[in-house]
Design a protein around this nucleic acid. Structure first.
Lengths: 200, 200
DNA sequence: TATAAAAAATACTAGACGGTATGTTTTTAA
DNA sequence: TTAAAAACATACCGTCTAGTATTTTTTATA
């Protein structure tokens, strides 16, 4: 079993280093050479574990990116408590928790979406899966709010979920243009106003 | 004057063709060779008119992109009429007017922002200028609404403007993941709900 | 029509790119 | 202990990249 363990470790190293580089410099302009330089391994190792750069990209999406969104934006939605509070704390709390690096480089998933989703259907499908699960979690939470009479029943949960996700991903891109957090503060302000108006 | 005219024409041709290619395939992966192949001119012509690819990128932002946002999203905000109606018609109207191509490839400005705004300060500044002017136009409209008592005076115009822009740019990215307009319909639904709640 | 300047064409670098072919070393199983 | 297989290393290929140097063509002006 020792061999399989080492193999897994190497794959994880490639995954970790490539994610960092994709996040910093984009997917297309990060070469396999650069990735393997960061791992201190060689190209031979890369092509032993992945059949292509595209193959690696798909695994980054379905493992690293998926996990990030789950941990940061989906799992928190399933906690107990007031629906409006959960919405507010999940969205604005996550924004406030970002490092300078994360603010500068935006949302890694959104970066992938904007860079390659319109070029390869395989990427599109893998990324869509994450968004759909995020949306489903939001809809589930909003439906609970309607049952508990904290969310206005006349509003479409799908519409609210889509609007929330869109604005969140949007501002993570726009923040790249600035060197301070004013735009994030304004966003949180606008978000808070929006959530407040979802009340029953 | 004929020489200057021809020169201007060539520059415009390079601008037009490169914009199309940047829009379709991204800035980084569109080479000068590809651009000049599309113009049926040679690389010599390119480097006669532009000192670098970066130089062209900056001109694309400050001319082509700027004009697009002005025509589509800023100028309409200065028309007469009910502020809420103008907001709704400008945002949802623009979304509905997009071609299949524009839906597939998202917002060219947002693509630039996500691809290169975190890598070169010169790009960042040029792109920020557009967003700031868009925001200023929205704030101006919202302030008018407050004066006319159609917009709730207790809401921050800056926050609303930021939230509107964020959600719009966000959904234009997310739409890339889908092959139909359902996500846009949901967005428009969510937007309409949001605008409705800005009332005084 | 001669001349100078602008516009564009041609030919070329040096390095980076994804991917492959073929080694060598390490681990596993008999 | 040995042979096969897995894990990597090394060297390389053809293609593409931004940019440069040089030459030819076109245009404006005197």
């Amino acid at each position: 079993m020792e061999q399989k363990q080492k193999s897994e470790l190497t794959k994880q190293l490639i995954l970790d280093e490539s994610f960092k580089l994709f996040y910093q410099n984009g997917f297309k302009t990060t070469s396999v050479d650069k990735i393997m330089k960061a791992t201190n391994l060689t190209k031979g190792a890369f092509y032993h574990h992945y059949k292509s750069k595209k193959d690696l990209g798909l695994e980054i999406i379905s493992s690293t990116l998926q996990k990030r969104v789950y941990d940061g934006m989906i799992t928190p939605l399933y906690q107990d408590g007031n629906v409006l509070d959960i919405l507010e704390s999940t969205f604005s709390g996550r924004l406030k928790s970002f490092s300078l690096f994360a603010k500068k480089h935006g949302c890694p998933m959104n970066n992938f979406i904007n860079e390659i989703a319109d070029e390869e259907e395989a990427y599109q499908i893998a990324l869509k899966r994450i968004i759909e699960e995020w949306k489903a979690a939001l809809v589930h939470l909003l439906e609970r709010g309607k049952k508990e009479n904290t969310i206005n029943k006349s509003y479409s949960s799908n519409a609210i979920a889509t609007y929330l996700i869109s604005s969140f991903e949007g501002v993570r891109g726009i923040r790249k243009l600035y060197n301070d957090d004013q735009i994030l503060d304004e966003y949180i302000n606008g978000l808070s106003l929006y959530i407040d108006q979802l009340k029953a």
